[in-house]
Design a protein around this nucleic acid. Structure first.
Lengths: 349, 349
DNA sequence: CCCCGATCTGACAACGTTGTCAGATCTTCG
DNA sequence: CGAAGATCTGACAACGTTGTCAGATCGGGG
């Protein structure tokens, strides 16, 4: 699978073990510049009251030795401010979380803060361990997309001054800042539109209601159907994990007598499978999906998505976190990010 | 854009400023358990030679106070091992880098290490500052997708024991481990296939040769064309940044007398625009693109991509880094990740 | 001329942890 | 029964930095 390159490496020196010098400290700089460590500290931190010529000498010594302040020691001594926040998500490679990470990184960068990212992989035990680990690293704050249902274990950390903001899903057992998508409202609006267009039988496709967002979306859809007297639990299909299963289930439903004329896919993996199957069959059923996704406009079947701005979700949460870090001690807030309905896909051919 | 939720927040207590207790330290635990700090340290670190009953007392005190070891102080005292590595990429939200980040996070997790991620935003100055900052945080190692051309400033850090592995693009001015995609070989193979299928005029679409990977891909394509005596610089179009421009340039080339019968898009943004335009026109030109992408198989025009496994790229680099962290001092290595040709898109209709 | 404040500098302790070492107790064996 | 080792514990210093404080120097106003 992997093979060494054929001569691309301009290896100037093949000496294997290099110098391995120790890192210079303020003590070394001070010795070289002929001043005390405290003066070095002052210069490095741009503190006032240092004679220009002395500062020059120190800076020269810093440059000569290649000194870099040890951030660990610095934030240990000065108490707070590691200038690092922790982000806990499910899986970095997933585009949804990647977008969140990107937006959070942007806000963090605006506050001269670095980002420690951890993946919970939907495992509550792992989530708990990672959050504890992040706290042990003295992060200034936490952004959490919850995997588990109970976050009471974070209470003591929050009380000890590590603020936490939850996004996309609510925290359990902990009054905390939360930023959520309007899942229920979006699903309601989308399904109501289907109903208004005359659909009476709407197939609902989801994996499970174990996850908060899915419960909300399902509830929104059911509200809209019930409002029109169209609720029918037999049209709800669970256990759909991937596009392939979604395609199969859509096919099964269409093959039944009195099939649905519309489908609501509760996430974009399911939408994708549904698009494939509807396109394959040349069907004319309507399709609504929650979550937009990349390239959706180029897919070979027209459908509507409940879209929202993931970056706004993440930036809102990150900005709220930094307000907390700066000392905002007001009551926890719940914010909702609105959704909109957008048409996607190419026309039927 | 954002509005407060309507009554979803089960705010049990509206008291704004909570207790704000100080974090307990080993001193506190020691006092409560009636032992010395050193014994607490031993228990917390599972060191041998502690009486079981004493360990029990300490653990009870730890639980009662909710003590967590301060990772900063720990790694400051014990020298190395912050159990953190730094990853520098261009932009987290980009799926390519997100995939890299995900794979790196996986390997890091296998080594009980956390991941500090920074975005260079293709800015060499920012890259340099971020890398210095990561070093100041005493990371155990660095994974870098270079933005700049010169990384000589990292030499001292590497010599002082922070190993660095570069991926996707080579480092400049520094003998260092590097893991690259076989850009030249992949482009060569793809274009050779076009030639073998009878194409004599191949339009080449790219942004610029400022980036290493693009130079290599262009060189591979030109090699293949030259080998068949088909090199023609007039068919190379530069300055294509986005799908829209790509679509326009493809249209322009097709409208010329004696138009190309095939196109080679040097990245997936360009491929995407080319697909749209060729589909729109109902063209029958062949299309080759470097980089696969999500949903490519569902796009409405058939094309071939030079594909590679981004996860393998990242995992290979991460595993090499951890070997360095564990003490491997052998000569720097250059590794190449192979590519393959894959057919994508739906048939013409 | 002296005192006062502004400017500049360094000694020292402290952040929370762990490595080193020495001391204490207990077991084991010649 | 005494010596040697194994087991257990704590005092102390140190990691690299910064906050506190006190001391030194200088210019200017009474």
């Amino acid at each position: 699978m992997i093979h060494p390159s054929h001569g691309g490496g301009k290896v100037s020196q093949v000496t294997s073990a290099p110098a391995r010098t120790k890192r210079p400290t303020m003590v070394d700089v001070a010795a070289l510049a002929g001043v005390s460590v405290k003066t070095v500290s002052r210069v490095v931190n741009n503190a006032p009251y240092v004679q220009p010529e002395v500062a020059q000498r120190v800076l020269a010594a810093v440059a000569e030795l290649g000194f870099r302040r040890n951030h660990l020691a610095s934030s240990l001594r000065s108490g707070q401010a590691t200038a690092t926040i922790g982000l806990l998500i499910e899986e970095i490679a997933n585009p949804f979380y990647a977008t969140i990470a990107g937006a959070v990184a942007e806000v963090a960068s605006e506050h001269d803060t670095m980002l420690l990212i951890a993946s919970s992989e939907e495992n509550p035990a792992r989530e708990q361990q990672l959050l504890r680990d992040l706290c042990a690293r003295q992060v200034d704050g936490l952004l959490v997309v919850p995997a588990g249902e109970d976050h009471a274990f974070l209470r003591s950390e929050v009380e000890r001054g590590t603020p936490a903001v939850f996004l996309d899903r609510p925290a359990g057992g902990l009054p905390a800042d939360t930023v959520l998508i309007d899942n229920r409202g979006g699903a309601h609006a989308g399904v109501r539109q289907l109903v208004e267009r005359g659909h009476r039988r709407v197939g609902i496709l989801l994996d499970s209601t174990a996850i908060y967002t899915m419960r909300e979306r399902l509830a929104g859809a059911q509200d809209a159907l019930a409002a029109a007297g169209l609720a029918d639990d037999r049209l709800i299909r669970y256990g759909i994990r991937d596009p392939e299963t979604a395609a199969r289930v859509v096919g099964d439903l269409l093959d039944e007598p009195d099939p649905p004329t519309a489908f609501f896919a509760l996430n974009n993996r399911i939408s994708l499978g549904a698009v494939e199957e509807l396109h394959r069959r040349g069907s004319d059923a309507a399709l609504l999906g929650f979550d937009d996704f990349d390239l959706s406009r180029l897919l070979p079947y027209p459908f509507t998505v409940v879209a929202y701005d993931t970056r706004t979700l993440a930036r809102t949460a990150a900005e709220l976190l930094f307000r907390r870090i700066k000392g905002d001690r007001s009551a926890p807030r719940d914010l909702l990010i609105p959704t909109e309905l957008v048409n996607r896909g190419l026309p039927r051919h």
